[in-house]
């Protein structure tokens, strides 16, 4: 007996960004939380609608920690050789000449913040991701050309295959398809 593939979600296809924006807003108003939108370019206002509060990512905290680690690294890297490892009298200044440490501490703060932002983003996005179910949707390649897609996922607590399908059809899309996971 052939295995029935599990469902990832329902995908609605729209022709304009305005339609997508309205559809996303109405889905949100209707109580759907687990959804995502796909468009060939950034649609202003869309992320605020689609991303629900429990999807908030801890990227800011990661970058802050990275930055502070950089500051500390810069301090230790200069403090150790100058004060402990190989102290030299330079111009009669104290070994711990903190004003001259600040530029390096600053640079390392920026470097570590930037690196943690990039790698944090990659990890939080589950990248690299060779397989994603949305590509099972027919015509989904148009999402990088001229069509706009809204996918309500099965993990949404309000998801019900028939009712959600009716709801999406009510949003007047070009097409609604089931996406296999």
């Amino acid at each position: 007996m052939a295995k029935v593939p599990a469902l990832y979600g329902l995908m609605a296809e729209f022709e304009t960004p305005e339609q997508l924006l309205e559809a996303a807003q109405r889905s949100r108003d209707d109580g759907y939380r687990r959804m995502d939108a796909y468009s060939p370019f950034a649609v202003e206002g869309l992320p605020e609608i689609v991303v629900s509060s429990h999807d908030k990512v801890p990227l800011a905290g990661i970058v802050l920690c990275g930055g502070l680690t950089g500051t500390l690294t810069g301090l230790v890297l200069q403090w150790y050789p100058n004060v402990v490892g190989y102290p030299l009298n330079i111009g009669g200044k104290p070994y711990f000449s903190w004003p001259s440490f600040i530029p390096i501490m600053f640079e390392l703060t920026i470097l570590f913040s930037a690196l943690s932002a990039v790698f944090g983003m990659i990890i939080l996005n589950d990248l690299p991701q060779p397989y994603h179910p949305v590509f099972n949707a027919p015509r989904f390649d148009l999402a990088s050309r001229d069509r706009f897609f809204l996918c309500i996922e099965t993990r949404d607590p309000k998801f019900d295959i028939d009712r959600t399908k009716d709801f999406l059809i009510g949003l007047d899309p070009v097409d609604v398809t089931e996406v296999e996971s």
Binding site: G91, K93, P99, S100, I102, P103
Partner: peptide, 12 residues
Amino acid sequence: QFDQFLIIWAGN
């Protein structure tokens, strides 16, 4: 402000 201070402080 810090740069001016640092340069003058280092130059002494």
